[in-house]
């Protein structure tokens, strides 16, 4: 599942007016009460239909998500190499993982990539949203231009940028033919710079969506507060900085969560753009996991790395989901 779309997900989670029915306020505690099935006279089937309908999905989730997580955790404590072997190995695979230089490269790259990708996407998203919020003529035509990259696959994005940044035939050649003959752009094959090409392509793909989130946030701000600030004589810049942006905090949080978990899950883009190279210059935990598990016959190490990824994401997502589901108690 391409992680860009996964990104929209927590956005949805934010939106949930968790559990509050929309019916106009009624007295009493009726809002707490489910319309619930009256038991009598309708039979067991009707009364339990709801649970019955939900149960396959629940079962599938328990097995395919939680069961498999446990399975992978078990593998990470086993001696598995080429194939799964269920022989206890204690923390050996974790020790091996943390003794692998490549793993450090992957983590360092994730730090660079994640940090820049999140920061630039947030900044660019907010900036374009603010620009678009200035009663722009043709906004309806511009918005889809910023948003369309999220409709396409990371593999396509990677393929396109790989060509666009092609040393020799790509940007280089364009600049040369425009007369800037000393221009070189070799980041794709430069081990020190390759990771930044991933950042560029990643930002290109996602920032439009972040822009859309911010734009919706801006549109949701109470107009009267802004009018009041204008009457108070605040210049536009000040109004944004002091009044509007602080009110966008929930959007920032949602966007941050989305970007963070997308960064950690990034896999397709690297594969298509650099294949993890040159050398291991753009290795990420996700590519590390894949290659150690499936091609380097180190399934235990791969499982251990997957567990590390899961724990990192869980550390962010679990508190977030908990607060989202908890906040608006039904």
């Amino acid at each position: 599942m391409s992680s860009k779309d996964v990104g929209m997900q927590p956005a949805g989670a934010r939106a949930a007016p968790m559990g509050l029915p929309a019916s106009p306020s009624r007295d009493d505690l009726v809002k707490q009460a489910p319309p619930g099935p009256g038991s009598g006279g309708v039979g067991w089937l009707q009364a339990n239909m709801a649970k019955l309908v939900l149960s396959p999905s629940l079962a599938v989730t328990l097995v395919f998500v939680y069961g498999f997580i446990v399975w992978t955790v078990v593998l990470s404590f086993s001696t598995s190499r080429l194939l799964p072997i269920y022989k206890w190995a204690g923390l050996e695979q974790y020790a091996r993982l943390w003794a692998t230089p490549n793993w450090y490269v992957a983590i360092k790259n994730l730090g660079i990539y994640g940090g820049l990708y999140i920061a630039i996407s947030l900044f660019l998203g907010l900036f374009i949203a603010i620009l678009l919020d200035q009663r722009i003529r043709g906004e309806g035509g511009l918005r889809p231009i910023f948003l369309y990259p999220m409709a396409i696959s990371f593999i396509v994005t990677g393929t396109a940028w790989k060509w666009f940044l092609n040393p020799g035939l790509g940007l280089d050649r364009v600049m040369h033919s425009w007369g800037w003959t000393s221009f070189t752009f070799d980041w794709l094959i430069n081990p020190d710079m390759a990771i930044y090409t991933v950042v560029i392509a990643g930002v290109w793909q996602t920032s439009g969506f972040i822009m859309a989130m911010f734009l919706a946030g801006l549109r949701g701000i109470d107009n009267e507060v802004i009018k009041a600030a204008q009457i108070d004589g605040a210049p536009t810049l000040q109004i944004y900085w002091r009044i509007i942006i602080p009110q966008l905090r929930p959007v920032f949080l949602s966007a941050l969560i989305i970007l963070l978990h997308m960064a950690i899950k990034s896999y397709d883009l690297v594969i298509a753009l650099t294949g993890g190279g040159p050398g291991n210059a753009t290795e990420l935990p996700s590519t590390f996991m894949y290659s150690y598990t499936f091609t380097r016959n180190a399934m235990g190490v791969g499982a251990a790395s997957a567990v590390m990824m899961l724990m990192t994401i869980a550390a962010v997502i679990v508190p977030y989901l908990y607060s989202e589901l908890r906040e608006r108690r039904t």
Partner: peptide, 13 residues
């Protein structure tokens, strides 16, 4: 919901 967020690497094998 949490199932949406997991890195799918953790269920591949």
């Amino acid at each position: 919901l949490f199932g949406c967020f997991i890195p799918f690497q953790v269920v591949l094998v």
